[in-house]
């Protein structure tokens, strides 16, 4: 009798243990599914954000597209207050965006690559980390601080001491006296904006260049040194050709940043919708136009600003996509 009860108790406790385990397993399987689904949803949020950006910009820009059509791209005039119908054209901000970024790249690319060459080829090991940190911290400074600094410190300095000298030096040379010409009226100019942009994108170029330079197999460099190459010859004939795709990718990435940079440019470019041949004249960019006018705009003016934003997004999208493709090609090769 007692043994029977004993057995019954055993089986019942075994049963509850099995049941418990089954319950826990079901719970785990459920949690497992929920977690997997949550990660998937979150990942698709990224695509949703992109779709949301495109849809919301197109919807917002639609009235301006209807009103101006293709003319928008080739009209120089920007007169939102004009009666009865405002005339709005994107040519001046597009020009300012492209030229300011181009000048910024002209300054930042040699500097950025020079720093990367110094860091990878010459720099004593103990100094490498602090110098790299200092350069990368430049990328951490918020862009409004650059704008403020450019407005109060760099702009007045350039306008008072540097730019008049450059204008005087090129005064008698044709073509150049247009590019570097004109009167320096204030601390606001396209060139000032370009210089600030150059400082801002410098860390991106340097960081990527240092990364891709370090993918060069040491044997290649050692072989070049072994046959008597100088440091520059090794860099020029081995390192740069080997890493060309990556360097161009990094430069494009920096260009994407420069094209869309807003706060740093808004303060110092002057927000003037005029196309001038001189880089010392005030100008505007797409992002500066949006930043300075959007809050007070309405109707077709606001829609035109959103259309400008759409143009900027398409432009940077293609530049950044090209950059990523190039960097991906390099990664594949490094992985192979």
């Amino acid at each position: 009798m007692s043994t029977v009860t004993q057995t019954m108790q055993d089986t019942s406790s075994k049963n509850t243990a099995t049941q418990q385990r089954a319950r826990v397993l079901v719970g785990m399987a459920f949690g497992d599914k929920v977690f997997a689904l949550a990660t998937k949803l979150a990942a698709y949020t990224v695509l949703l954000v992109l779709a949301g950006i495109i849809v919301s910009l197109v919807v917002g820009a639609w009235p301006a597209m209807k009103a101006f059509g293709f003319e928008f791209l080739i009209t120089r005039r920007w007169a939102p207050q004009l009666e009865p119908e405002p005339v709005l054209g994107a040519l001046a901000p597009i020009y300012g965006t492209l030229v300011s970024s181009f000048v910024a790249m002209l300054i930042a690319v040699p500097f950025g690559l020079g720093i990367a060459i110094f860091l990878t080829e010459l720099c004593p090991h103990s100094l490498r980390k602090p110098i790299r940190l200092a350069i990368e911290l430049l990328a951490g400074i918020p862009s409004i601080i650059y704008g403020m600094w450019g407005f109060f410190v760099l702009g007045p300095f350039l306008a008072n001491y540097i730019e008049p000298g450059i204008v005087a030096a090129f005064a008698n040379i044709p073509v150049l006296n247009t590019i570097f010409g004109g009167e320096i009226v204030s601390n606001l100019s396209l060139f000032n904006a370009s210089l600030i942009l150059a400082i801002m994108i410098l860390p991106f170029i340097t960081a990527i260049a240092v990364d891709v330079f370090s993918t060069v197999p040491p044997v290649l460099k050692e072989a070049a040194y072994g046959i008597g190459c100088t440091t520059w010859e090794v860099v020029n004939n081995v390192v740069l050709p080997f890493t060309r795709v990556g360097v161009v990718g990094g430069v494009m990435l920096a260009l994407g940043r420069a094209l869309g940079e807003t706060m740093a440019v808004t303060f110092i470019i002057g927000n003037s919708f005029k196309i001038s041949g001189s880089i010392f004249a005030p100008s505007t960019t797409i992002s500066a136009a949006i930043a300075s006018e959007f809050a007070e705009s309405s109707g077709v003016h606001q829609s035109a600003l959103i259309l400008l934003g759409l143009l900027l997004f398409v432009l940077t999208f293609f530049v950044l996509a090209t950059a990523r493709f190039m960097l991906m090609r390099l990664e594949k090769r490094a992985g192979a």
């Binding site: 992109l50 949301g52 950006i53 919301s56 919807v59 869309g260 992002s287 997004f313 990523r324």
Partner: peptide, 16 residues
Amino acid sequence: ILLSAPSIIIGLFVYG
């Protein structure tokens, strides 16, 4: 690409 997209575009998106 979103990582390097101009932040003012994000502002326009959220505005809309």
